[in-house]
Amino acid sequence: MATSVPLATTRAATGIPTARLAMWWVIASEIVIFGGLLATYVMLRLHHDHWAEEASHTSTLAGGFNTFVLLTSSLFAVLAHQAAERGRGVRAARFLWYTIGGGATFMLVKAFEYTNEISHGYTMFRDVFWSYYYTATGLHGLHVLAGMVCMAIVAAGARRGENLHRVELVGIYWHFVDMVWIFLFPLLYIAK
């Protein structure tokens, strides 16, 4: 790891810290990726009448529980940020680990759901609806996994009191992943 940063990194002509500004641009680029995917899903959903029937085979219970899990993990992420802002690295790291736990729970429930659906014949190849279902939730799941890995790295640093500003950044990313799920949930689990 580099021992110093360029002068450029420490400048903030906009008044927004460089790292956070970059994180907002990351979020912006993610908005169009998920936006494009979900927009096409909604269009096709309106086009194909039989998708409603296919959608009725998703588990509202699992989806609702996962929404609860992600909302709660977001709470932990923001509490971690609060702790980091007050300079309490160990506390921030603990909350980050709670968030990672939330992510792991989410992935477990998702795995259970996938297993259940696939074993009942609702595979990716059954219908284009299911192709979208697995693509959208799979892409989201990859984001959850990536967030968990990043948070583990940030938590390790925060425990030592290093790079506390990263707690906020990884939190912003996590909230975004949460927001994507907030839209995926009604689209895939509620509207039937």
Binding site: G35, G36, L37, V128
Partner: peptide
């Protein structure tokens, strides 16, 4: 950055079509 997003989503779908058989 703003225009590539939908194509990235599309590329995932096309790759699944090619490789997985969707």
């Amino acid at each position: 950055m703003a225009s590539a997003g939908p194509l990235i989503a599309g590329a995932i779908m096309l790759l699944l079509d090619q490789v997985a058989g969707t």
